[in-house]
Design a binder for these strands. Structure first.
Lengths: 223, 223
DNA sequence: CATTAATAATGAGGCATACTCAGTGACTAT
DNA sequence: ATAGTCACTGAGTATGCCTCATTATTAATG
């Protein structure tokens, strides 16, 4: 049956990819020989080249798959219709954990971007991953929880960039994870939150109004 | 004269470094052959190895020098005793411009960090560069312009990480520079600013006090 | 200035390794 | 059973990093 045949091929391709991912991650790209990958995947060296044109394409495939898997997880963290702040927290936590766990692959990513020929490209799967972050910002704007005056991509860059850099800081310090990074980021993000002063139509907000008034009074009373 | 001799050696070392920097930056590390570097530096291939043990050490030297130069510029941008927000703006602008201009080297940096043997190290000159950012945050805290409850490194990660990621976004979009990124970041940073309510001793602040009161009134009047 | 010693530079060749390809096997269809 | 197609193999080739015996240059010495 041709179906089993196709499955065998896909299994081989997967075995090669997995072997490469694990070895690249462990010993780096330069520290990994093609012969090793072949041996670990249990194929002859030449066979690798039937599935991937060269070492660089194999690297690209490894990196691309990593971000594809990450995208799945990120989408899952965001799918619920919980309040914005909670979704941001979940996404941030997932993101930070992942970057820390697979830091080696994250670093290797920039190398996959550089195709020997020329200009720095964005790999499609990374683009896709970043879109998840954009999506959540857009939803926040649509629901009125985030102000619309700041471009989505700038809010996203703050969110994404901060976490990426924090991951680097933590890894280089050999601290595994620190949730306070996320708390900090989220409290900063309040700067993007719309301040809702209750309106007259808003009948259920009497309580909120009183709290706000109290806060103002307390601030005034300080001088 | 032994002095001229030493100068000639240093000039050669510099020529090799410059050749490597320019070629790495143009064609990437893998796209650059040692023979090319030698030719561009006008020495024999073997001579390169009298100054740098191997290609990877040469790469490290190139990257390290880049960040060392950057540190100089950053320190200059911060040396004045202007108000915090202005210094942050200058540093951010310098940082963003530099990362965009030499994006290729920035990307190559992560590769220099990975020594074939083992774990991701932080190159000393990058550490030094990041310290400039820490310094400015610390000053802000010392002068009471920034709150002290958030760890310095977290504020720095927000600042640094956001700009680094923004640089990537801009470069991949082939937009050269966008100052609004900096405005956005700085207005967000207001979240770290201490709110100064004027005190009774603070005789010169009558004006500020009135403005604050007016703002409160306007906010209250909205409902 | 001649001679010797020390230091720097050279580039042909060694060597590791990414990649190729002619040959072999395995599976399918008739 | 036979021919034809497709996947696989691994010895061999090409490339590019790096070494090292040799040569050139500078410094030291009498």
């Amino acid at each position: 049956m041709g179906d089993t045949q196709r499955q065998r091929l896909e299994a081989r391709e997967e075995a090669i990819l997995a072997a490469a991912a694990s070895l690249f991650s462990e010993s780096g790209v330069d520290g990994t020989r093609m012969a090793e990958i072949a041996r670990k995947a249990d194929v002859a060296e030449g066979t690798v080249y039937l599935y991937y044109k060269n070492k660089h394409e194999l690297l690209e495939a490894v990196v691309d798959r990593f971000w594809r898997e990450l995208t799945k997880g990120a989408k899952a963290a965001v799918t619920s219709n919980a309040p914005l702040s909670q979704q941001l927290t979940e996404l941030a936590s997932y993101h930070l954990h992942s970057l820390i766990d697979d830091f080696k692959i994250v670093e290797i990513t920039s190398r996959a971007r550089q195709r020997h020929g020329e200009p720095g490209r964005q790999l499609p799967q990374i683009r896709e991953y970043v879109r998840v972050f954009d999506l959540i910002m857009q939803r926040g704007i649509a629901s009125g929880e985030l102000e619309a005056s700041t471009p989505v991509w700038q809010m996203r860059d703050v969110f994404y960039g901060t976490l990426e850099h924090s991951a680097r800081t933590l890894v280089l310090r050999e601290q595994p994870f620190d949730g306070s990074v996320i708390d900090n980021l989220l409290s900063l993000f309040d700067g993007y939150r719309l301040k809702h002063y209750p309106t007259k139509q808003d009948s259920g907000s009497k309580q909120a109004a009183l709290e706000l008034l109290q806060q103002l009074e307390s601030e005034i009373s300080r001088w």
